[in-house]
């Protein structure tokens, strides 16, 4: 898979506050990548740096495997924090400016306004829109020109429940079409519903990253090893206790079936006369980390 965005050792401070510290991330083509973290964890700072709004203190990043350059952003549809447009211009003229910046013709404007359910308001001034409508216009602008990458920072901010559902649908549709999505959010369920990969940030540091199903899934994942891993693997595969078994660095990684606890696995192994000497619940630790994150909000 092609690399879309790669971040190496990125750091940024605002006066004495360290917004992000030595952040590393790699996002591949077709991934729906969630950046999850409470307010002030550095999500917006990270996205602001990669979209060229602010400069990093240290570290580097690359888009499409190349050093950052303004022209690349024409292939990226971004919405960072609240969208800002010219208040005295109507929606169509505002989007024309974006089209001119991206170097494309105006044909796409009606389509994105329809997608954002703002077509009827296309002749209204931006300043007359409600907060939710402004947010939807921001998403419409990000969709202009059908970019291969979408960078959305809290896209459902300020929307009513219906609006949230609509935006999710629009974003999911983009993911289905194979677009790469980078989504920052402080809402666990949002990331779970839309993304397949996730990075968890806290106070500017990367706590964990990986596939959503591994990090945030309901399934319990444990790693274990015993005196005869291969034999245990075969026996477990037919036991009906586990969904999946993989071998990573000489330890077995099990995805447990619902309502199966690690102690049942231990008992099972003991019955098979295999002695487990390493047993670790992966999900537990991440879950507790995440609870910690949520608690601070």
């Amino acid at each position: 898979m092609n690399e879309i965005l790669s971040i190496q050792g990125l750091s940024k401070s605002y006066k004495s506050v360290k917004a992000i510290r030595k952040l590393n991330l790699q996002i591949l083509e077709g991934q729906a990548y969630g950046i999850l973290g409470p307010n002030g964890s550095g999500k917006t700072t990270t996205l602001s740096i990669v979209t060229g709004i602010i400069r990093q203190d240290e570290g580097s990043f690359s888009w499409f495997g190349e050093p950052p350059e303004a022209g690349q952003r024409r292939f990226i549809g971004s919405l960072i924090e609240t969208p800002h447009f010219y208040p005295y211009l109507n929606l169509e003229k505002n989007l024309r400016i974006i089209c001119d910046i991206k170097g494309m013709d105006y044909r796409d404007i009606h389509r994105v306004l329809q997608t954002a359910k703002l077509f009827e308001r296309r002749k209204s001034k931006f300043s007359t829109l409600s907060l939710g409508m402004k947010q939807r216009l921001g998403i419409a602008a990000a969709l202009l020109g059908d970019p291969r990458v979408l960078v959305l920072d809290e896209p459902t901010n300020g929307l009513d429940p219906e609006g949230i559902a609509e935006v999710r649908e629009v974003v999911l549709e983009q993911v289905k079409q194979g677009k790469t999505l980078i989504l920052a959010s402080h809402i666990l369920s949002e990331v779970e519903k839309i993304c397949n990969h996730v990075a968890i940030l806290k106070k500017g540091e990367l706590l964990a990253n990986g596939p959503v199903k591994e990090l945030l899934a309901e399934d319990e994942i444990i790693e274990l090893s015993c005196n005869n891993n291969e034999s245990l693997r075969k026996k477990l595969e037919n036991s009906g206790l586990v969904k999946e078994i993989e071998t990573e660095n000489g330890v077995l990684v099990l995805t447990l079936n619902e309502k199966i606890t690690p102690s049942e696995i231990n008992a099972f192994a003991f019955d098979q006369k295999l002695v487990i000497h390493h047993l670790l619940s992966r999900k537990r630790s991440l879950e507790s980390q995440f609870l910690e994150l949520v608690k601070e909000e």
């Binding site: 060229g52 303004a70 952003r73 024409r74 971004s78 960072i80 969208p83 910046i101």
Partner: peptide, 9 residues
């Protein structure tokens, strides 16, 4: 900021 995000240097 908006113009930067959408691709002007």
């Amino acid at each position: 900021k908006t113009q930067l995000i959408f691709g002007l240097s």
